[in-house]
Design a protein around this nucleic acid. Sequence first.
DNA 1: TTAATTCAGGAACGATTGTTCCGTATTTTT
DNA 2: AAAAATACGGAACAATCGTTCCTGAATTAA
Lengths: 193, 193
Amino acid sequence: MARTKEFNEDQALDKAVEIFWHKGYNGTSAQDLVTHLGLSRSSLYDTFGDKQQLFFKALKRYQIQGQDAIKELLEESENVQEAFTQIFKQAVKESLEDRITKGCFMVNSSVELAMHDENIAKVVSENRQTMEDIFLKAVQKGQKAGQISTKLDALTLSRFLYNNYSGIRVLARAGEKNKQVYDDILKAMFSLF
Amino acid sequence: MARTKEFNEDQALDKAVEIFWHKGYNGTSAQDLVTHLGLSRSSLYDTFGDKQQLFFKALKRYQIQGQDAIKELLEESENVQEAFTQIFKQAVKESLEDRITKGCFMVNSSVELAMHDENIAKVVSENRQTMEDIFLKAVQKGQKAGQISTKLDALTLSRFLYNNYSGIRVLARAGEKNKQVYDDILKAMFSLF
DNA sequence: TTAATTCAGGAACGATTGTTCCGTATTTTT
DNA sequence: AAAAATACGGAACAATCGTTCCTGAATTAA
């Protein structure tokens, strides 16, 4: 009975992730969204509601995609230590390569909005908890396999790892391009394995 | 020849630090500034120029005050390890106590603005470099005194320490109130001493 | 006293913000 | 072919943004 959408909703959401990630919530105007998503104002509001709702959906999408990627990598790997190394080296690589360094969308949103928007705060908090769980299971597996030292218990180590992950993303967002800085952080961090 | 200012410029700047720290640059309106600094629009613009200049001065002020405090603590302490412990425990204490957790003004500004304003990027970069230097000298002192392990070289350790400092401030900004999370991070981190 | 300077308050500016609405075109189902 | 439904582009909205300017009162130094 009705006309079909001329754009793919998920693809548009990916575009929203891109620009919100790059410019932040307050830094992204309605016009920015229209231009970057490539659809009209009316379609944008009809499809996604207002700016807040669109941002929320974009952040959720980013969260799920990011978590799935890391979870899969850690679960499928036989050597957990190697998997962690891969994850962190990838983060460093992105930080150095990206001409426009965006950091981590979740960290950025956390700093910009968590304090003033409890919905965002909830997502951020859940995200940290989930990441902690993912890391925890991997560390436990690694300790059982003798790949990771048992000097520190798995939960402590997981929280520590995620904290360094956040730190690296802040460094990236600030535009740090000196590889040695990142490598030193990783070197010290992994010396606890 | 002229009427004297009825407000203290530095005190007003401190107020500016407070509100920019709390709400960020984009989140703070001109009206917010008028209300919180307690001076009229005209006085505000006459004294500090526009919003960008005021923000810049506020960030600079925060930087100098924060750095001086940490530098002094590390230089005057006889036991470097204790001094570092004190610095990080203080950061955790602030994170847990503050009803409105503001995180670190420098980290916040880094995430919000460094990518789009090269003046801010410069301040952030210089700040990280200075903090690295302050930490470096302290670590070197601690290693000579046998208070810190020489398993890792001083520069590596310094960069690692500052990265964890950033991470903790992000956690605080996100409103994390579980002390155990912070304590675990510190426990793992200090196990490298 | 006079002149100079700065204060506070508020009106007003143009620009930009997020959002709504309308007329038209297009596609799908009956 | 007709009717229903939705996408589309763009005009238009009120609100807020940062900023400027004007007024008159207050205070100071000459």
